[in-house]
Design a binder for these strands. Structure first.
Lengths: 218, 218
DNA sequence: TAACTTAGTTACCGATCGGTAACATATTAG
DNA sequence: CTAATATGTTACCGATCGGTAACTAAGTTA
């Protein structure tokens, strides 16, 4: 906790830039925000201070507070942004297979696995935030709760659209597999974790819930 | 983050004690440790300082440092204790059904649901710790990783003992459901979350992996 | 009674936390 | 050119962080 933990301030931003052009010419607020999103995701919200964020963005604390009223406000905006990204990702996938809810769900889990293969992946940003904030932090936990409720509702709806006999149970089961994948990804690097089994489990559960029940034979 | 977050130090320990007798007469070290475990679990490791812990235990910082070499050491001990408790819980359940791996797994998920019904439940302490520490915090994340690997191995072994055709996949699927339950429990209070569906999903997946495959008819 | 262990108290250390005031310097728009 | 805007710089605030020194008051044990 004390010694070499998390991120420490100081350190120039110009070192080893990959994409040359669009780095420094953006507005300071945007640079700070992007940096903050990255650091929050990688080191946790409590693990990064505003001084560190500002320095990593090539700016300083005073410029930070010209763009954001408080760290709390930045955190809330970070979570909102992560949710926005998540639904954009989600929608881009499900719209590929209109009117085919089974294929949609499978594609979501395929895409989740693909992302989990990236070394930068640290699971679900919203969920991780929930793990490190206490229940009494109302604003943040309300935001995360609303997001998770929405995920659940969408999976319910898709299970229903598949014609599942028990859409609630199937939807909830899918959510457990989804969040289980995010949670375990925090620990198991790259493709080594149990998330690799998610898609097979998804298919099995959908089969169980959706195939016509053969009372006997045929 | 700033205002009313997490726990603040100060505040007497004697207020509103339920169990009268065995509270204050234990060793200071034990009192501090129990208090720390409780606070870490409820508010996160980063969300609680040593001052707060010592005060909540009815002691002070100096006495804290007579018993613990550092906060890091306390955190490590906290995680070890949580793991110890977890395996004790696990073993108590599986030994109830010797030689019946399927029943063992079902009982584990039944017991998980039961615990999730408690309002004090905040999911998996080890997993939550992983969510709030960054990957480069070696000692802690190594500890959590070893724990998760052990869970995975046990589930693999049980799947194998069930005679699953693909024990790796079944074990991993079970782990996803298990950790999905812990993760979602952080957000959904009491029995309102998708964790209620875990047992049904477990049974379905075991069925899929273990029933004799009827090539056609029988 | 004397020696030792356990614990509470107070004050302090340097570092970092979130947050602000005041001033200097660029860039850009009119 | 000038005025407004956006940013960088330095220094500071009180609070809290993890951690320590020195002293005191008990309880235990010999």
């Amino acid at each position: 906790m004390t010694s070499d933990k998390s991120v420490t301030a100081g350190g120039e931003p110009e070192a080893a830039h990959c994409s040359a052009a669009p780095a420094a010419k953006t507005r300071v607020r945007d640079r700070i925000f992007e940096t903050a999103c990255d650091l929050f995701y990688r080191h946790g919200i409590r693990g990064v201070g505003v001084d560190t964020i500002a320095a990593a963005a090539g700016s300083n604390k005073m410029s930070f507070y010209r763009s954001f009223t408080s760290k709390d406000a930045l955190v809330a905006e970070y979570l909102h942004e992560k949710e926005r990204e998540y639904w954009a990702w989600w929608d881009a996938i499900v719209t590929r297979y209109p009117l085919d809810p089974r294929r949609q769900v499978e594609a979501l889990f395929e895409a989740q696995l693909e992302i989990a293969l990236s070394s930068r992946c640290r699971g679900c940003a919203l969920g991780n935030a929930a793990a490190e904030i206490s229940d009494d932090e109302d604003e943040l936990s309300t935001l995360v709760r609303a997001y998770k409720v929405k995920v659940r509702e969408r999976l319910h709806a898709m299970a229903q659209a598949m014609g599942a006999r028990d859409a609630e149970t199937l939807g909830d089961s899918l959510m457990l597999l989804l969040d289980g994948g995010y949670f375990t990804r925090l620990i198991f690097p790259l493709g080594s974790g149990p998330i690799s089994a998610a898609l097979a489990a998804v298919r099995s559960l959908i089969d169980v819930h959706c195939t016509r029940r053969s009372i006997n034979g045929t």
